[in-house]
């Protein structure tokens, strides 16, 4: 974990990014344009490994007690929002308290979209898979519901659907007997919206604690943030190279 003094001052950061964006926008306009085209790929074009979707969560901006990201995820993906031991949760608010200092932090925990996902390694049928653009998904057509991936995930990011479902979101098929988890709102990403429901909700609430983007695009806000501020991976000791990173812890 990083020390507290590594926390960036948010106003500085935004000012810097704005300046950076203007500078790159003028100096590298053709490059930016090119990349813009590549990102909004055509429906017939497969996801590219030139892109790696990721997320940075600034825990200093994440409000304790706010769960707008969770509600937005539930609405977007058709989850009931119930929180019993058998209910699915794709994203959850985690409250952590440092045992020595007593400092409390609130943060959203979701599938970390690892570069080397243990869930994909252990899946016997290959249903757990990582798309070329780094999004980790469950192919429900070949998931047999053995739950080995849930045993293997270090982040407790996966849920098993325990009962029959009806009236699913046509864009988010889900059903009994399969394992599921956060998809980085792949339906939105593939439409070219390049954002997720949780990030939109966090921005709408004015917290702006979550940032989604292409880690491989040096011009993207997320890549700039990665370059400028110290971010940490959860369970970095496992060397999974997660796509979701945290600031301020």
């Amino acid at each position: 974990m990083n020390e507290q003094n590594l926390k960036p001052d948010s106003s500085d950061r935004r000012a810097f990014l704005k300046a950076g964006a203007v500078a790159t926008g003028t100096a590298l306009a053709p490059g930016v344009l090119l990349f813009g085209v590549a990102q909004a790929r055509a429906p017939g074009e497969p996801a590219s490994d030139k892109v790696r979707w990721g997320m940075i969560i600034d825990t200093t901006k994440c409000a304790s007690g706010c769960s707008d990201c969770v509600t937005a995820c539930n609405t977007e993906n058709g989850l009931s929002g119930a929180t019993g031991p058998q209910d699915s949760q794709w994203i959850r608010k985690l409250n952590i308290r440092h045992l020595k200092s007593g400092v409390e932090t609130s943060l959203p925990m979701l599938c970390q979209h690892c570069e080397h996902p243990p869930c994909v390694d252990v899946c016997p049928t290959g249903a757990s898979m990582k798309r070329a653009d780094g999004i980790v998904l469950v192919d429900r057509h070949t998931c047999i519901g053995c739950r080995y991936c849930m045993m293997a995930c270090p982040y407790k990011a996966r849920s098993f659907v325990h009962e029959p479902l009806t009236d699913q979101n046509p864009e988010v098929p889900r059903g009994k007997g399969c394992v599921e988890s956060c998809t980085f709102c792949v339906q939105k990403v593939d439409r070219g919206e390049n954002t997720t429901a949780c990030v939109e909700a966090c921005n709408a609430a004015g917290h702006k604690a979550m940032l989604f983007g292409d880690l491989n695009d040096p011009q993207s806000e997320i890549a700039q943030t990665m370059k400028t501020y110290a971010t940490t991976e959860v369970r970095a000791d496992l060397r999974l190279n997660t796509g979701v990173r945290y600031q301020g812890i």
């Binding site: 509600t71 608010k93 699913q168």
Partner: peptide, 28 residues
Amino acid sequence: WDCHATKPMKQYRPAATPRVTPLMVQQQ
């Protein structure tokens, strides 16, 4: 149809109000 919706997108209404996740710890 165990997983896929049987109705077109334009008829889809997200579950009216998904319950908000309580933040307190549930003792299981």
